[in-house]
Design a protein around this nucleic acid. Structure first.
Length: 319
DNA sequence: AAGAACGCCAACCGCCGGCAT
DNA sequence: CATGCCGGCGGTTGGCGTTCT
């Protein structure tokens, strides 16, 4: 029995998402929460398969995603975690809650893989052929020593990353994965809204005429949205086109990314809450931690304890 | 200036595991 | 237990922008 495809190949759109589709998806998720992806295309009228909707949400539209350049700390984390976990991008991403597995995978494939190859090459030259392929044949003692070095390096990276003095500390990124995700500050949403705003701007330039037929459900959800009014007239769209800032602001509120529009503490349920990161649940729950991982994590947690203790009990209980 | 080569990244594809029936 | 569905994951691709020749 072959598993049927998740969607009909006929009548399903592929390729880049349009801003309009993004809006439909976001508004639907805002209303119903993420999950039950199978129902999303049907209920929204989106000509996308459920998988595509989920991916679009988790990799691009989901609040709290940090986009853009990776910090040196993040880079270190990725390198060491990759050394420890291999290409388990989802597991690695669970240590960097603001990054998607796709992002990390892409970053690895485009930047770090080369770096590693280069380093391996250097190492191989200096150590007389202990390249990555050669390492498969190394003795157990050597393997253990190497593992210890890796662990040590990862530990160091974690220590540095978790250092409370560092403003860029990864602690803020690591912390949410220890439990329910704390709502990201408004600034974190900006990247998302900016992306969408940018897309929409382009779309408006080319003319919104090739618009999709929005299902009644979605139209209703539009009407229900606090700021949908600001997008309900062509006039507003034109005004927004003239002024990028206004557009961004409109999006901020349209998507409820303005913290004032969302009561984070009152998600309909922990499972469907918009901000509950369904793609990255508690890492310890989703990814069974190996002894090393557990140890690394505990080590990091100990170092971050001081910071964590600063969080008020209310904040902890919220999520 | 124009075409080729390269790099980046969003999105797709296929497989797998968990869960419900 | 077998079957089917759903969501998640990792590998790969294709399009677009940038850099190079």
């Amino acid at each position: 029995m072959g598993r049927p495809p998740c969607c009909d190949k006929i009548g399903v759109m592929k390729g880049p998402w349009t801003p309009e589709e993004d809006i439909i998806l976001v508004s639907y998720i805002q209303e119903h929460g993420p999950g039950n992806w199978r129902a999303v295309p049907t209920n929204t009228g989106l000509l996308r398969c459920s998988k595509s909707c989920r991916l679009r949400w988790t990799n691009y539209l989901r609040p709290g995603i940090k986009r853009g350049n990776f910090t040196p700390n993040e880079e270190k984390m990725i390198i060491h975690l990759q050394a420890l976990l291999g290409n388990r991008w989802a597991a690695i991403a669970s240590y960097l809650p603001q990054r998607t597995d796709n992002d990390i995978k892409n970053y690895w494939n485009t930047h770090l893989k080369k770096l590693k190859k280069f380093q391996a090459g250097q190492e191989g030259q200096s150590r007389d052929g202990l390249s990555s392929t050669g390492s498969q044949q190394i003795s157990r003692g050597q393997w253990e020593r190497r593992l210890q070095t890796d662990i040590h390096m990862a530990r160091q990276a974690l220590s540095e990353a978790l250092s409370p003095e560092k403003p860029n500390s990864l602690l803020t990124e690591l912390k949410p994965s220890c439990g329910y995700e704390k709502p990201a500050p408004a600034s974190l949403y900006a990247s998302n809204t900016e992306n969408i705003a940018k897309l929409l701007k382009g779309w408006m330039r080319s003319g919104p005429n090739q618009s999709l037929t929005i299902s009644t459900t979605t139209q209703n959800s539009f009407n229900n949205m606090a700021v949908a009014d600001s997008f309900s007239s062509e006039e507003t769209l034109n005004r927004a086109d003239e002024n990028g800032t206004e557009l961004s602001e409109a999006f901020d509120s349209l998507f409820g990314f303005d913290s004032s529009n969302i009561d984070f503490s009152q998600s309909t349920s922990p499972d469907t809450g918009l901000l509950q990161d369904e793609s990255k649940p508690n890492s310890s729950a989703q990814v069974p931690l190996s002894v090393i991982e557990r140890w690394l994590f505990d080590e990091g947690a100990m170092q971050g304890k001081e910071y964590l203790s600063e969080v008020t009990p209310d904040e902890n209980n919220l999520f």
